[in-house]
Design a protein around this nucleic acid. Sequence first.
DNA 1: GGCAGTTTGTTGAAATTTTAAATAGTGCTA
DNA 2: TAGCACTATTTAAAATTTCAACAAACTGCC
Lengths: 159, 159
Amino acid sequence: MTESLDRERMAGWRAYIEASQRLFTQLEEELRADHGLSFADYHVLVLLAEVPGQRLRMGELANRLVFSPSRLTYQITSMQRRGLVARQSCPQDGRGSEAVLTAAGLLALREAAPGHLASVRRHLMDDLDDVEVATLTRVFERLGRRLRADRDASSTLSD
Amino acid sequence: MTESLDRERMAGWRAYIEASQRLFTQLEEELRADHGLSFADYHVLVLLAEVPGQRLRMGELANRLVFSPSRLTYQITSMQRRGLVARQSCPQDGRGSEAVLTAAGLLALREAAPGHLASVRRHLMDDLDDVEVATLTRVFERLGRRLRADRDASSTLSD
DNA sequence: GGCAGTTTGTTGAAATTTTAAATAGTGCTA
DNA sequence: TAGCACTATTTAAAATTTCAACAAACTGCC
């Protein structure tokens, strides 16, 4: 009984991971072909655009993206070269620096977003009914909260 | 109205992608730390293990993993070096080759699977009720089917 | 104030991974 | 059998990621 329940859950897991992998690959391809942006590029632009001042500390950005510090440095340097973001040293903390969305970055996001969101709708959302959307949202918001909490907890283990 | 519906759907999308990214990162970390396997390694092992003869043509494997041919060659060569798979030329088609699961590969999978599946349960499945599992399964099986169909269709466009 | 210990972010070198173009070998078909 | 298509690999280059050091700046404490 637990056995068959497990099997059902594992089938769900398999379906989830395989379809997600495929979906992410597909979306990244379209984003790159149509707008020259990687998934990470796009995600950075979104995160910066929706925050007051359109700026975030490197550390905070790394947390949200689940990137290592040096990986984020690389990512931001690359975006800086393309003019999508700028770097500013942090007023409050001389060690820190902030990534700031540039006008070009905002423009790039505005150009990419409609097409990208249309892809998301076409590949995923349009096929879901309201109950499914609600369940999906609930499940993944819960999961996200829990994973963030886990991460915070494990980084505090050394205390 | 369509407006607010869209907003709900987009919130769902955001939650889904962020939590999934976090989950996959976490699971890959554990898999690598505990068993020295990448997600791709593990996935190859699973695909080979569950197919009769424990062997798949390179092309078929590439399709299932959504890998380019040369990327798969690299992946399999790496696993071959570690003794997890072997290569055999295909009897039916002299051009082709097959990746075959080795005893060591099967062993590695058997060692890794319980811990990995436990992680999956702990991070994701244990927190879902039956209705949520059913919805998740249904949604992603449908999505997977559709994405596979899309890919097949687009590769046949040249006809 | 000044020192020890942290934290923040970057750097540079190395390792890994991915891509793109060219290639070798085989199958199919006119 | 010639020509074209298909399968997979090779090669070199590019892109990405990690790791270990590092510098600068903050903290708290004496």
